[in-house]
Design a protein around this nucleic acid. Structure first.
Lengths: 114, 114
DNA sequence: TTGAATTGCGCAATCG
DNA sequence: CCGATTGCGCAATTCA
């Protein structure tokens, strides 16, 4: 429906000339200002949020990188040293075979079924 | 400077009554519409970006959690099994002692502050 | 100087 | 009825 400039003057339900009218207009103008300030704040906060999240993301990626590196090292070390003995079974419910394969297990859930 | 309703009619530099005037107004109105559409799109994209980043973040955190768990397990296993021999020095430039302490090394680089 | 893009502002319709 | 939102046009200002 039309919201723009549509004077509906001349009929029967015209706004009072300038009694309550001005008062209402002024109040609305204030409301409009409040609303716009609020809107801009929200937009700005969203922009800030993006930056915060990008930083968190960077930190997390570094963390993953470091952990992956350490894990890779320990696995190598482990395999090299224990390639002779050590039970080829499980420990604490963790599948050792799987764990030592590579490091792709860091994705989503670990399928411990079957 | 006042930007609101300030008719500067009646003087000497009044806009032409409706020659180029209307044409210019119409052009500007179109420009205003373009500008506002563009603005809203950008805002929406920013909101979407926040959601994307939040998802990436969640994935990364799960990844860190998984890797930390695996790392902890391997360290325990390693310590338990190799507590008798194994050179206590280094491997490939990695400090074994440090690596086996706990898993706090995944934060921000190794801080050597006092 | 010129024209498009932005921006502050007020109006009116509509929403809650 | 009231305040909050929103589409829209105007004019000033900024950009290019």
């Amino acid at each position: 429906m039309p919201r723009g400039r549509v004077k509906k003057e001349g009929g029967d339900s015209g706004e009072e000339d300038s009694d309550e009218y001005r008062k209402r207009r002024d109040r609305n103008n204030l409301a409009v200002k409040r609303s716009r300030v609020k809107s801009k704040q929200k937009t700005q906060e969203t922009v800030n949020r993006v930056n915060e999240l990008r930083n968190e993301n960077t930190v997390l990626e570094e963390k993953v990188k470091t952990l992956t590196k350490e894990l890779g090292f320990l696995k190598e070390l482990f395999l090299a040293h224990a390639s002779n003995n050590v039970d080829p079974s499980k420990f604490e419910g963790v599948n050792l075979q799987k764990l030592l394969e590579d490091d792709s297990s860091a994705g989503t859930s670990t399928d411990n079924n079957a």
